[in-house]
Design a protein around this nucleic acid. Structure first.
Length: 270
DNA sequence: ACGTTGACCTGTGTGC
DNA sequence: TGCACACAGGTCAACG
């Protein structure tokens, strides 16, 4: 769902239109996992000016001029949507952000797993420090060193662990493993040095290719304009159970592994 | 300390 | 047609 390419797409769109803008009026339509709750959130955020909108792992960060920040996690179905002044609340809409310059953004979340939270500069630092390295900011060589060691943990579980490597979710974990020709069910400790490099470069290649397409819309994901990502048709294994492998033609398998639907080619992923 | 599992949610698709 | 149920999945608290 929203993983690094999707969250980065949303970040870029939000930043382009909201950097330097002042939040004039906020209305909570349906109270959810915002913090602080209800009116305190509204009172605290109104008047703040956005300096920059950043992304760390799958977390969006609206940095304000006063040093505080709004952190937002889309989880599976969270959305920020730009709307016009005539827009009326839809079923899953939660918060209405209106800017002094006229922009309007609605926070919506079908499954209600996502959150928006106001944090101090210090709290933000603590949150951001828990994440592992950004895969697109690191070299292939330094990324590969993350997989060094004798861990008995599966590659799939490791890639999903945000404290080890940031921004990868279920789709890109499977995609990267397929591109690397490595089974996600193997252990980290079983990787040879060449395989570590291949996995690292495959992670970068898959994320970059998806970014170009503005992400994958497997189910609910859309960007801030309501547009779907274009990477779905370019997926190699995710959601392609039974279809021929793009590399060798063998039918793609789907199993449940590490609590997740896990897709791989039984022939060319060793 | 590290790794794994259940809970949190609602809409959609499937089988009876 | 209607109902029950599995499934989608990112993260954190709780557990081993």
């Amino acid at each position: 769902m929203p993983e690094l390419p999707e969250v980065e797409t949303v970040r870029a769109q939000l930043h382009a239109r909201l950097a330097g803008k002042k939040i004039a009026r906020v209305q909570i339509w349906r109270s959810g996992r915002e913090h602080p709750v209800n009116e305190a959130f509204v009172q605290e955020i109104q008047g703040k000016i956005i300096q920059v909108i950043e992304r760390r792992a799958k977390l969006l960060v609206w940095r304000f001029l006063d040093g505080s920040a709004l952190t937002a996690h889309l989880k599976m179905t969270g959305r920020f949507l730009f709307t016009d002044q005539t827009y009326e609340q839809q079923k899953h809409d939660r918060i209405d952000f209106r800017f002094a310059s006229g922009e309007r953004v609605v926070w919506s979340d079908i499954r209600q797993f996502g959150f928006v939270r106001l944090v101090s500069a210090r709290e933000l630092g603590d949150i951001l420090s828990t994440y592992g390295p950004e895969p697109l900011d690191a070299s292939v060589q330094s990324l590969a060193t993350l997989f060094h060691g004798s861990s008995s943990r599966s590659i799939k579980a490791f890639l999903l662990d945000q404290t080890k490597i940031a921004g990868i979710g279920n789709i890109y974990a499977d995609e990267a493993c397929h591109l690397a020709g490595i089974r996600p069910t193997r252990t980290i400790g079983s990787l040879a040095s060449g395989e570590r490099l291949k996995l690292a470069s495959s992670i970068q290649a898959v994320l970059r290719a998806s970014l170009v397409q503005k992400g994958t819309s497997a189910n609910d994901y859309v960007d801030t304009e309501g547009e779907r990502g274009g990477f779905l048709e370019l997926l190699r294994v995710y959601g392609r159970k039974g279809e021929p492998c793009v590399t060798c033609g063998a039918p793609i398998e789907r199993i449940v592994f590490a609590q997740r639907g896990t897709h791989f080619c039984p022939d060319c992923q060793k």
